[in-house]
Amino acid sequence: MNKKGVLLVNLGSPDSTSIRDVKKYLGEFLMDERVIDMPYLKRLFLVKGIILNVRPKKTSAAYQKIWWKEGSPLIVLSQRFFDKLKRKVDIPMALGMRYGSMSIEKALHHLKEEGVDEILLIPLYPHYAMSSFETVVVKTEELMKEKYPNKKLTVLPAFYNEKNYINAMSASIKDQLDGHNFDHILFSYHGIPERHIYKSDTTGNHCKLDGTCCEKKSKAHETCYRHQCFETTKEIAKNLQLEEGKYSNSFQSRLLRDPWLKPYTDFELKALAEKGVKKLAVITPSFVTDCLETLEEIAMEGKSEFLEEGGTEFKHIECMNDDDRWVDVVKHWILDWKK
Score class of each variant (00 low, 15 high):
Lys238Asp: 10
Glu268Tyr: 02
Ala273Gly: 10
Ile192Phe: 14
Ser248Tyr: 05
Thr232Leu: 03
Ala271Phe: 01
Gly191Ala: 11
Gln241Lys: 14
Leu240Lys: 01
Cys207Ile: 07
Leu256Val: 11
Leu242His: 07
Lys275Arg: 14
Ile197Ala: 15
Ser218Thr: 08
Tyr198Asp: 07
Ala220Phe: 10
Asp266Leu: 03
Glu268Asp: 02
Ala273Glu: 06
Lys217Ser: 15
Lys234Asp: 05
Thr203Glu: 15
Thr265Phe: 02
Lys234Leu: 04
Ala271Tyr: 03
Ser200Gln: 05
Glu274Lys: 08
Asp258Gly: 06
Leu240Met: 13
His227Glu: 07
Thr203Gln: 13
Tyr264Gln: 00
Phe230Gln: 11
Ala273Asp: 08
Ser253Lys: 11
His190Trp: 07
Gly191Trp: 14
Ile236Glu: 02
Asn249Arg: 07
Leu240Asn: 03
Asp201Thr: 04
Ile197Gly: 04
Lys208Leu: 14
Lys216Met: 11
Pro259Lys: 14
Glu231Pro: 03
Lys262Asn: 06
Cys229Lys: 03
Glu215Ala: 07
Leu261Gly: 00
Glu194Asp: 13
Thr223Ala: 13
Ser253Tyr: 11
Asn249Val: 01
Ser248Trp: 04
Gln252Thr: 03
Asn249Trp: 00
Gly276Pro: 12
Thr232Ser: 13
Lys262Arg: 10
Gln228Asn: 06
Asn249Ile: 03
Asp258Cys: 05
Arg195Asn: 15
Ala271Asp: 10
Leu256His: 08
Lys262Tyr: 04
Cys207Phe: 09
Thr232Trp: 01
Ile192Ser: 04
Asp266Glu: 12
Lys199Thr: 05
Ile236Val: 08
Gln241Cys: 11
Tyr247Pro: 07
His196Asn: 15
Cys207Asn: 12
Gly245Tyr: 15
Lys217Gln: 12
Gly211Asn: 09
Phe251Tyr: 15
Cys229Pro: 00
Ser218His: 10
Leu261Cys: 05
Thr232Asp: 01
Arg254Gln: 13
Cys229Arg: 00
Glu268Leu: 04
Asp210His: 12
Leu242Cys: 06
Arg254Phe: 08
His206Cys: 13
Glu231Arg: 01
Lys208Cys: 07
Lys199Leu: 14
Glu244Pro: 15
Glu235Asp: 03
Cys224Ile: 07
Glu274Cys: 02
Leu242Trp: 14
Ala237Gly: 02
Tyr225Met: 12
Lys275Ala: 08
Ser253Leu: 10
Glu274Phe: 08
Arg226Met: 10
Cys229Asp: 03
Thr202Ile: 09
Glu243Asp: 15
Asn205Leu: 06
Asp258Ala: 12
Ile192His: 09
Phe267Met: 10
Thr202Val: 13
Lys199His: 12
Lys219Ile: 12
Ala220Gln: 11
Cys224Lys: 10
Lys262Gln: 12
Lys219Pro: 06
Ser200Trp: 05
Leu255Trp: 14
Gln228Trp: 09
Pro259His: 11
Ser200Leu: 05
Arg195Phe: 15
Thr265Lys: 02
Tyr264Met: 00
Leu272Thr: 03
Phe267Gly: 00
Glu231Asn: 02
Glu235Ile: 00
Arg257Pro: 03
Leu255Ile: 13
Asn249Phe: 01
Ser200Pro: 07
Glu235Ser: 00
Trp260Pro: 02
Arg195Gly: 02
Leu269Trp: 02
Thr202Trp: 04
Pro263Asn: 09
Lys208Trp: 09
His227Tyr: 13
His227Cys: 07
Ala220Met: 08
Pro259Ala: 06
Arg226Thr: 03
Val277His: 01
